[in-house]
Amino acid sequence: MPLVANPAGYLNNTEMYHQHRSEIPQTWEELLALCEQIKAEGILPFYFGFKDTWTCLAPWNSMAVELAPANTAKLVNQGQTTFAVEYRELAEKYLQLLPYGPDDPFAYGYNDACTAFARGESAMYPIGSYAAPQILSVNPDLVLDSFVMPACSSAEGNVLNSGIDLLFAVSADCENKEAAYEVLDFLLADENLQQYIDAQTAIPCKDGDFTLPAILDGMLEYIQAGKMLDYQDHYYPSEMAVDAQLQTYLIQQDTDAFLAKFDTDWLRYNRDIIRMAQEYEAAHGSAGQ
């Protein structure tokens, strides 16, 4: 039973940002131009917390939904394409963000980055809304905005990256199913759900009359239009350590090596699944995209 989803674009220090401008970039080129402008004013555009490898996935995911097909993993498993093809633009664009971050992004982890951003050391922070509680605990007076990461050259291509953040499951063997369901009912009750999303800056998975936190205003149109896609990294097997590979890539900046390794590792870690999927499709025919 899914409870809440989280939207991930980038966070914005409202005061710092709006001191000098009011337009939100709608395309990739506008984003880069904005970064140049901010940098010229002597402010750091982005903060990164890449010592914790999982944070490397945040910008990756928010751009992947716009630059790679949603069913990339499936297509690769069917042998119809490779990651070297689908992720190339994504990988190259990611590198373009690095000059706008701190000098040594790999020395500082997620917590350091949240603290730094909360203290006004950068104007923006490319991470999901789930970081808001952490940031606000450092600086409760901070006013935050969040926006979709625009990775395409045209505004129509923009998609909000959002996926299920919290999900509950009851095992079939559970001996106390009634009690478990009671807990779930409690959690799903409107007022409790509202409390949760207020505290954690999340989107409820339940239909109803909920007030979304103000921080999500910048993404509201995407949420309401349903223009959202799931995290690509939900398909990556954890043993492949894509987060660590991304960190390596960002340090070494060798796009070809990174993509080639992605493909070979993928085939190796997923070979059982690929074999099973191919056997299934051979027996039952491919069931559409």
């Binding site: 490898t53 350590a241 660590a244 960190q247 390596t248 340090i251």
Partner: peptide, 15 residues
């Protein structure tokens, strides 16, 4: 060695 890796680098940077 294990404890020090957990505390210092968690296997990084760049594995």
């Amino acid at each position: 060695v294990f404890d020090q890796i957990v505390a210092l680098t968690k296997g990084g940077p760049a594995q």
